[in-house]
């Protein structure tokens, strides 16, 4: 009697375990493909880069080498005999380019997004948004080449300046090669990432409750006060999300600084390229610089997730 009871109990236990397994395996089966993808093409390569970055001056033809922090020390440690401040300068310049183009995108993008979300005629809104993000449909490479044809010595900009000088007597505007300068990089980065900024700000501003703006006016706030005390705080998550996205992508962008920037506008992405495919071929140092870039960008993403509006990022 007791044996049969325990047997049935055992069977019950068996069913429970099978059930639990199914509960666990179901989600795993769904996560599987994406998980394997991430593991193979993101986690493993990153670990590989980390591994290489810990071998000082590893070159592609080397079989292996002793582990050490030599690559990082070269970048950060001023007491290292092989320390060269040029790396920190390059990192700093990349941060500077990214910061300036982020601010430029915000200043240029906010009025556009505000107009699209609040003031534009409702039935034109979707069309206008699509029109604005249309440049994203062509590759960033092509768009940078377009800028080359504008900024080069015989380009559109100089043609325009010459035409203007001829038109107005007494005024002689100087023409110059606008290409291969920091200004060209700023223009290129801002132009490339402005649509992303507008899109994210638009998503945020579109959700703004107009009656809040009316309430502020009703309580005596003039348009400027309403903007700073209500509109900006209400859309702050969107502003944060837009800025971080533009900052991160500008930081890592390779095409614009390579095509539009000159020798004096070396950025971290170009430096990494040189270490791997350029003349220096120092994979160890390149990997270390990559890890620094990955960490900096991860930090920005962490900030984005903590303070940014996840919804507007998703919508964009």
């Amino acid at each position: 009697m007791s044996a049969s009871l325990s047997k049935s109990r055992l069977q019950g236990l068996g069913t429970t375990i099978r059930h639990r397994c199914q509960q666990l395996l179901g989600p795993l089966a769904l996560l599987g493909p994406a998980g394997i993808w991430l593991l193979l093409f993101l986690v493993l390569p990153t670990l590989l880069i980390l591994d290489i970055s810990l071998v000082p001056d590893l070159r592609p033809e080397d079989v292996g080498g002793a582990y050490g922090l030599g690559n990082y020390s070269r970048v950060f440690n001023p007491f290292d005999p092989r320390f060269d401040s040029v790396y920190l300068q390059v990192i700093w310049r990349s941060v500077y380019y990214a910061t300036v183009s982020t601010i430029a995108c915000l200043v240029l993008g906010f009025p556009v997004a505000y107009w699209l979300a609040i003031m534009a005629p409702r039935r034109w809104r979707n069309f206008l948004v699509v029109a604005f993000i249309l440049p994203l449909w062509t590759s960033s490479l092509l768009r940078s080449y377009a800028w080359i044809s504008i900024l080069r010595p015989t380009g559109l900009l100089n043609t325009f300046i010459t035409w203007l000088s001829d038109l107005i007597p007494g005024v002689d505007l100087p023409t110059q090669n606008w290409l291969y300068s920091s200004a060209a990089v700023f223009v290129g980065l801002t132009y490339n990432f402005l649509p992303y900024m507008v899109l994210i700000l638009y998503a945020s501003l579109e959700k703004l409750d107009i009656s809040l703006l009316e309430a502020a006016a009703d309580l005596g706030a003039n348009p400027r006060q309403t903007f700073w005390k209500v509109t900006v705080p209400q859309t702050l998550p969107g502003i944060a999300a837009g800025c971080l996205l533009v900052f991160i992508t500008s930081m890592g962008d390779f095409v614009v600084p390579t095509l539009l920037g000159g020798a004096s506008s070396m950025t971290i992405s170009r430096l990494i390229y040189n270490q791997f495919l350029g003349i220096t071929r120092n994979w160890g140092l390149g990997s270390a610089l990559s890890m620094i870039l990955i960490l900096a960008v991860s930090l920005a993403i962490a900030l984005l997730l903590k303070y940014g509006d996840r919804d507007s990022v998703k919508e964009a």
């Binding site: 009316e214 502020a216 009703d218 706030a221 209500v230 209400q234």
Partner: peptide, 15 residues
């Protein structure tokens, strides 16, 4: 913003 009236909104419109 220059009128001496204040409104209670249907949706409250609290900040």
């Amino acid at each position: 913003h220059r009128r001496s009236v204040n409104t209670v909104f249907q949706s409250y419109a609290l900040f």
